[in-house]
Design a protein around this nucleic acid. Sequence first.
DNA 1: TATTGTTATACTCTATAACTATA
DNA 2: TATAGTTATAGAGTATAACAATA
Lengths: 153, 153
Amino acid sequence: MTEKDQLPLALRTVYLTLHRRSDAVFGELGITADQFVLLATLAGGQAMTQRELAARMPSDPSTVRAMLVLLENQGLVTRVAHPTDARARIVRLTKAGLRVYQQAFNAGRPLRDKMADALSPREIRQLMSMLQRMTESLQAPIPELVAVSETSR
Amino acid sequence: MTEKDQLPLALRTVYLTLHRRSDAVFGELGITADQFVLLATLAGGQAMTQRELAARMPSDPSTVRAMLVLLENQGLVTRVAHPTDARARIVRLTKAGLRVYQQAFNAGRPLRDKMADALSPREIRQLMSMLQRMTESLQAPIPELVAVSETSR
DNA sequence: TATTGTTATACTCTATAACTATA
DNA sequence: TATAGTTATAGAGTATAACAATA
């Protein structure tokens, strides 16, 4: 069991710890940590289709749809027809949705600060770089995994 | 929006990407990625009570119980009486549980390698150190969060 | 033919609260 | 009084497959 093999568990531990504390903070505003991520994805950029939203979160389109239904019932997002593609629907934050997002962003600051306080500014940059490279590497196809699946048929 | 504020989302993206790919790999062996973590926690050390198990995963005792029921039905873990504390139950891997864990560990190697390949050996050490510090920092009480909760009563 | 989204469905994980038994 | 575990309950996220409408 090398240090490399402990990486997934270490990653999981910090993520889940963050996720639980985030749920506690955001729960006071009536949203979950995952719903906050959805709102943040919409707040960060332009409006987008459900598929684009799912790809950025990242999550599954049907999962995102389930989340959107909940958020729509709360009046935090709306879905309107796409201007040129009649199949697609554009998701947008409502005024209330933007307000809740901003409140949640502020409410979460102590948590983000606490996490970042464990690192130097230089380490934060290095960490961001590493996380992005890890994500790209994990998203690429992995030949050995394909081989395992194929041969097990 | 500073780089520091993007850290939680970057962490989430890499964790969820890893989690999904892990689920796909472990699913061929009949277990989920979270169940693998439970098995790994038991395989890594001595037998332990459900509470100890929950603390190490980390997870909630009632969540762990639900997972243990599923794993017990699959014959992968057993729960026996604690020798000195009649309230507690000791959780142990069965022979089949150890075998499945080992198979899953091996099946997950390409994934772990792929993730680690994005980093140099030095970066892996640095990353582990950072993740551990972040976890500790997040587990400590956060005064500002307490204050928010208190004042909102 | 491929793509967007919906629907139905099912399962795992999550967590709170009330409870029993024991320390 | 505090702790270990169970039970009941509820909800959120997850994802697959079949489907309709449209590109």
